[in-house]
Amino acid sequence: MHLPPLLRRVLLRLAGSVPLLVLLAFAVFAFLDLAPGDIAVRIAGETASAADVDRIRRSLGLDEPLLSRFGNWLADAVRGDLGTSLSSGEQVSDMLASRIPVTLSLLLVSLSIAIVVGFAAGLVAALRSGSFLDRLLSTLSAVSIAAPPFWIGLVLAYVFAIQLSWFPAVGYAPFADGPVEWLRTLLLPAIALAAIPAAEVMRQLRGSLQDVLATDYVLAARAKGLRTTALVGKHGLKNAAIPVVTVLGFRVAQVIGSTVVVESVFNIQGIGSLLVRAVLQRDIPVVLGVTLMTTIFVVVVNLLVDLSYGYFSPRSLVQS
């Protein structure tokens, strides 16, 4: 009986983000159209005749007006055809498909680290509020929010890959080659990416857990003789989770942005390094494809965050 309103919410939200995505795609499309330099001339080469350039321009459909070109691109994009790369001639969708698992692996490992470390640190800081450990963790979190993730990555690579040789300094091993090797290649970049969200989770959890532990119902439960572990587990964490999840949702866009740079540091062939190369080569279809892909991902994650409120706090379902 719970499903219909939930399903309606999901569908409404998804439908609501479609105009946004189309508008964004058009803005990026129109903006990239302003790029100086004639694409047809670039493809044909400097020495090509005017007739050759003209032929290429027509074959790419570049002689049509902006709106009809966007219409065509959109019609293709909806069917999963994002055009071909200007520099390599590959299908953009194929390039994305081969790199998405890499970036997703990185995001998955780093968010797991952020959640585990952030929750543990936040729990300790809230329960031992004011102690030396609490202050140490708060200082650490402030510093890791102030440091650029790619620089943390470089420092980690120096200590753990170059000096201690515990992990490979660069590269990526697919999951199919064995989960241990996969994790070994991902761990350092994932820690670098996890630093900021872990610190945010810790701060948020510390704050909201302290609030929850100060409420009357927790005091009542304590008076009835409930032990601290049960108290925190049963009442504290679940109620403190909502702001934490919200913060994580906010941070997802930022973490994806950092992925772009961290992938370059560790020479991981994911979405980020693809984007950097495409920008340097002005490979417009690839840039457009990556921008849209990441935006869709952020929209979906934010949707999941919204839906998780229903699990952590069923009353939010009734209110909305």
């Binding site: 964004l24 990239l32 942005g257 950092s258 740079v261 920008v279 990441t294 952020v298």
Partner: peptide, 25 residues
């Protein structure tokens, strides 16, 4: 407000790179 929300769901560095692709580095 809707436009602002939309712009905020594009990762900052990704959008900046897109703009740099046009304006040049």
């Amino acid at each position: 407000s809707r436009l602002a929300d939309g712009l905020m769901s594009v990762p900052a560095i990704v959008l900046a790179l897109t703009i740099v692709a046009v304006l040049g580095p």
